[in-house]
């Protein structure tokens, strides 16, 4: 594998977006890019990552390769990333380490790190990325982040309901309750503020607040978030990158039996 990002912060943002949700991950590299999936220890939150060749300045993968890493270690190395430096990932044919080369030609500087790869045996779940859903919402990731931060302070359960009037996020704590209603809007001046809802039926789902606080760490990937909900199934929270690919989170709901 030899894959070069023209801006090293792209890879840093991707890794930082889920490094607190899961501890380790297998990156599966092939001609069609880098894909990964990891589930958290409680088996409630699943992270999916897709980095297609379009995200790279140059991308070459001669043989399919799996790269297992501890995310805490990789995140340490990526602290060196900045917008002036490129980052090339190298993995040899017989992979036992990942080489990261940061280059800042303007400053005549380069940095090289090596990370020992780990053998991760994790089962993969069969998720259908084209999963049909009753409700799809596209909204500002900044707005979503603020709403999650504000409401999750009040309760460890977070409810989302969608009707034709809009999307309602609500919490019911022991001492306080809160509710945020967002209606579809079109902001011609700033398209990232748009909110659109497409739905075939209403939904009302609850999730554990702590996972939502993990998910919003990925908001730096995109100024938009796509939400997909169906009754009594995991929700998908997806951040798509400008150049293709992105990071998605499948979150299992809470409900009464």
């Amino acid at each position: 594998l030899e894959a070069k990002f023209d801006d090293s912060t792209i890879f840093k943002k991707i890794i930082d977006s889920f490094k607190d949700s899961v501890t380790q991950i297998n990156f599966v590299c092939s001609e069609s890019g880098i894909e990964a999936q990891a589930i958290d220890d409680s088996r409630v939150l699943l992270v999916t990552v897709s980095i297609p060749p379009s995200c790279f300045e140059s991308y070459r993968c001669d043989r399919p390769t799996t790269i297992g890493v501890y995310l805490a270690s990789l995140a340490k190395l990526l602290k060196s990333a900045n917008t002036n430096s490129s980052l090339t990932l190298y993995v040899a044919d017989k992979p036992d380490e990942l080489l990261l080369l940061f280059e800042e030609p303007k400053n005549q500087k380069s940095m090289e790190y090596k990370l020992k790869l780990v053998d991760i045996t994790a089962d993969m779940l069969e998720v259908d990325s084209d999963m049909k859903s009753d409700v799809t919402v596209e909204m500002s990731s900044v707005e979503f982040t603020k709403t999650v931060r504000d409401l999750t302070q009040l309760s460890d359960s977070f409810t989302v309901s969608v009707t034709k009037d809009g999307i309602v996020f609500s919490v019911q704590g022991d001492t306080a309750q809160g509710k945020v209603l967002l209606q579809p809007r079109e902001d011609l001046a700033d398209e990232s503020n748009n909110l659109s809802i497409s739905m075939s039926k209403t939904i009302d789902l609850s999730f554990a607040s702590k996972y939502l606080l993990d998910i919003i760490k990925a908001a730096s990937i995109s100024n938009k978030i796509f939400l997909k909900f169906s009754d009594d199934t995991p929700a998908l929270f997806e951040f798509k990158m400008e150049k293709g690919g992105g990071v998605g989170f499948y979150l299992a709901p809470k409900y009464d039996d």
């Binding site: 089962d123 069969e126 299992a252």
Partner: peptide
């Protein structure tokens, strides 16, 4: 709101 579901109940293991 009751029980936390796990993803295994929804997705098959590959």
């Amino acid at each position: 709101k009751g029980n936390q579901k796990r993803l295994d109940g929804f997705f098959k293991v590959k």
